[in-house]
Design a protein around this nucleic acid. Structure first.
Lengths: 211, 211
DNA sequence: GTCTATAACATGATAGAC
DNA sequence: GTCTATCATGTTATAGAC
């Protein structure tokens, strides 16, 4: 008689641990989730987890790594690509494309869960802080600044304000709406009004910088 | 020979517990801080804590209450007060006053610490979520909406956009900058540039809605 | 009423032997 | 992969001191 196939494909258990941990950490935070709870969901004994991860913290580290990899995956265009693109495209189209990118991000459950984890751990864990400040805040603003600079040089938008300031005025409301979105969705509340706000914000910004 | 005055003023220990808990929770989150750690900092035995709080959660509850009380303390003006005020005051002055209020908030260590705790606990704890969504987000936007409506009626600002939308455009960047500020300060990093951004944002908004 | 001292119990992360 | 052991943690309880 055959055994109950305890022989899963190699690497599957490790992947399952990561998935379950992301799910649980994003709801309760790293510190409030026990290894016991993770392994129960995965269907293995506590100690078996240590065959795949040296410590509980190493799981968290892997989660951060996953986010970093994904951010580099849907990589921002290079300066040359950006320049070529903005030759043919006006502000409206550029912002619309950015918005579509934004929507894909928030519709990706994995990324939103890790985003929540980063928010929860940002004070306890300097690695989360680093990702938020450098990769999310600074990275986005730097990118938009270079884009707006090019648009100003091409006379496609007003140059009353510095490109960096325009980047902040455009992006920061979107950060705040993202935060609110994550909270509303956590309670399965409606986010239609919020989506309209994002679109209205793009319209407002567009009106303001039109030359 | 006198004893080492174990007789402190009544209520002092309870207050010390709260202070220490706010300090520790704001750095590590509720779940990562042990009762042992709190009582060690206070200088009492673990079991003595339960003379003041029924559970560890009751401490957290008191912290939320403190924030709620403080929010109601520096209470927003009533609709009548607001109307009277906006008769005499232009947008620039109104926003400047709001900014001063904002600065006082972020310079109050207790409030910033509790703000951090709310951020950490927002997914694990529905009470934190409620405070952020209702008291902070909705409360602020509702207030600004009524203010901008009055300013529009007094022809002190343009009425191209709805007052609610103006409230969002004005306040959401400030929310995001507040979040960034809390992170930067946690690492004792410079926040001068951020402060300039807030002022530039107010200027930008002011220019935009000037009739 | 508030403190100390001490102990008990269930649950937590982790290590080592199998 | 499992089982077992170790040590920290939240909580309750008991007894005694001011």
């Amino acid at each position: 008689m055959e055994t109950m196939l305890p022989s899963r494909e190699p690497g599957q258990t490790k992947r399952r641990i990561l998935e379950v941990a992301i799910e649980l950490f994003s709801q309760n935070g790293y510190s409030a989730v026990s290894v016991r709870e993770i392994t129960k969901h995965v269907g293995i004994k506590e100690s078996a987890l240590y065959n795949h991860y040296k410590t509980k913290d190493e799981i968290l580290q892997s989660i951060y790594q996953l986010f970093t990899d994904a951010s580099e995956g849907n990589t921002l265009p290079s300066p040359e690509q950006l320049e070529a693109m903005l030759q043919h495209v006006d502000l409206q189209t550029f912002l619309k494309q950015g918005f579509e990118q934004f929507k894909r991000t928030i519709e990706n459950p994995l990324l939103t869960q890790i985003w929540r984890i980063l928010n929860i751990e940002q004070y306890r864990d300097a690695r989360a802080r680093e990702i938020i400040l450098t990769r999310i805040y600074k990275g986005t603003i730097d990118f938009l600044e270079s884009a707006f600079l090019l648009l100003q040089q091409n006379k496609k938008i007003k140059d009353t304000y510095s490109p960096r300031m325009l980047a902040v005025e455009y992006q920061y409301p979107i950060f705040a709406m993202m935060t609110e979105y994550l909270l509303l969705r956590f309670d399965n509340k409606e986010t239609d009004e919020l989506q309209q706000r994002v679109e209205a914000h793009i319209q407002y910004f567009n009106d303001y910088v039109r030359p």
